[in-house]
Design a protein around this nucleic acid. Structure first.
Length: 379
RNA sequence: GGAGGGAUGGGUGAGUGGUUAAAACCGCCAGACUGUAAAUCUGGUCGCUUAGCGUACACAGGUUCGAAUCCUGUUCCCUCCA
């Protein structure tokens, strides 16, 4: 397995900062990767995404195979050329859709059959097909193994069966991936919130020899505390020399606390989705720009963020855009949020390098205490 | 001048005797959003001392055990004909 050079330049407690070097460019870690599911980071130009400081973005196997079709993207020159993003790209395998589209798919030991949410047509995803789509057709720099994102909560028995399936699919993904010079493949640890199962899964995935290790099955309703506990129970079983990626996370507080536990990479739809919905993340916490109190607020969203959307537009104006249903509102907040998440990661890197990460962490954790996600009510 | 139609909660607009404090949508006020079926979804939106009470369907009367709904008058609006 080709592993991209991962150079850790500084460590502060369990937090570490460094660079993951890919043929398409370096990824500064800890890194936040904006999500571009359908070959677009929603509501943003690729130029804007790049200017926010993002080194790498995501694409999605399931969505792209349905539309415009993986073969078509390949015919058009691959996902980078097609979308206009020339930096590194990571693609998700479709494993998250196994969970999020549970009602539209059927699983067997060999793979998953999806009924398209667009037109009802049937699509088959196996570990090998997912690799073919990601690495061969889309041309992802980092591919993810096909996995089953385990539902939460679930029984020990269910979690064990699920992680074993993912382990098996991981091996088959590796076999299909083979040897490649300029691309790599990450494995995914599952096991819900059971220490023995996370250990079992982690040891299995690490033993298989991937180019990076992801933690899956998080941010699916377990809440902030459970998520941190799960990361804690998994980290001891991961090697230091590989990048660690927590999939689908998270809120700023989640990022800070995960970095403190040794995580190097993240992705999350939150900055763009909540931006489209009127939520702006700031150093003082999230605000809902649609709230009446911003109707005549002439201050910018967050002057401290080096982004035109953050600095050059009044809250009153963006409030108006949202109330009026104007496209520019969601565009500006998606832009701001994406820039804010990058600014947060940059700040984190700087503090790790300076050995002052714990100061930053305690400061932000106190400030963002109230934003921690609660565990989903089982009722 | 004549004939007809209509006035319902912030707006549009259902409702033609009791199950109507009054559908639905919009607006307004909040909340949620974590590997994107999400420019989405959820809750609230007459007042009060809130298992109840008081007001309320242009206005004023009337019929009825009971009226937004039926009758009479008034005011205003719309269409058509002269």
């Amino acid at each position: 397995m080709t592993t991209f050079p991962f150079k850790i330049s500084a460590q502060d407690g369990k937090a570490r900062t460094g660079t993951l070097e890919t043929p398409r460019g370096d990824i500064r870690t800890p890194a936040f990767m904006p999500v571009g599911t359908a070959a677009t980071v929603k509501a943003l130009y690729m130029d804007q995404v790049e200017q926010t400081g993002a080194d790498i973005i995501l694409g999605n196997t399931y969505h792209l195979m349905l539309r415009p079709g993986a073969e078509r993207v390949h015919k058009l020159g691959g996902l980078h050329k097609f979308s206009g993003w020339s930096g590194p790209m990571l693609t998700d395998s479709g494993g998250f859709q196994v969970w999020s589209l549970a009602q539209l798919r059927k699983m067997d030991s060999d793979g998953v059959t999806f009924r398209s949410h667009i037109d009802g047509s049937t699509h088959r995803l196996t570990p090998a097909r997912s690799i073919e789509i990601q690495a061969d057709l889309l041309g992802a720099d980092i591919s993810m193994q096909l996995d089953e994102c385990t539902d939460f909560p679930c029984t020990h028995e269910q979690a064990e069966a699920s992680l074993k399936l993912s382990l098996d699919w991981g091996q088959r993904s590796l076999d299909a991936f083979g040897d490649r010079d300029a691309q790599t493949l990450f494995g995914i640890v599952q096991g819900s919130n059971f220490p023995d199962l996370r250990e079992q899964s982690a040891k299995g995935v690490v033993g298989q020899g991937f180019g990076g290790i992801a933690l899956g099955g998080l941010a699916v309703g377990e809440g902030h505390e459970q998520m941190c506990a799960t990361i804690d129970m998994t980290m001891p079983h991961l090697p230091d020399h590989l990048p660690r990626y927590v999939m689908g996370v998270g809120k700023p507080i989640d990022l800070v606390e995960s970095v403190a536990r040794g995580v190097d990479m993240f992705d999350c739809v939150l900055p763009t989705r909540s931006g489209r919905h009127g939520q702006a993340w700031t150093w003082d916490g999230p605000i809902n720009i649609k709230n009446a109190k911003f109707a005549e607020d002439t201050s910018p969203i967050d002057e401290a963020i080096n982004c035109p959307a953050s600095q050059n537009y009044s809250r009153a104006y963006i409030h108006h855009l949202f109330k009026a249903g104007e496209y520019l509102g969601p565009m500006l907040l998606s832009w701001h949020n994406t820039a804010f998440f990058q600014a947060l990661m940059a700040e984190i890197r700087t503090h790790i390098a300076a050995g002052s990460f714990e100061d930053l962490r305690s400061q932000l954790s106190a400030r963002w205490e109230g934003t921690k996600s609660k565990a989903r009510d089982p009722a």
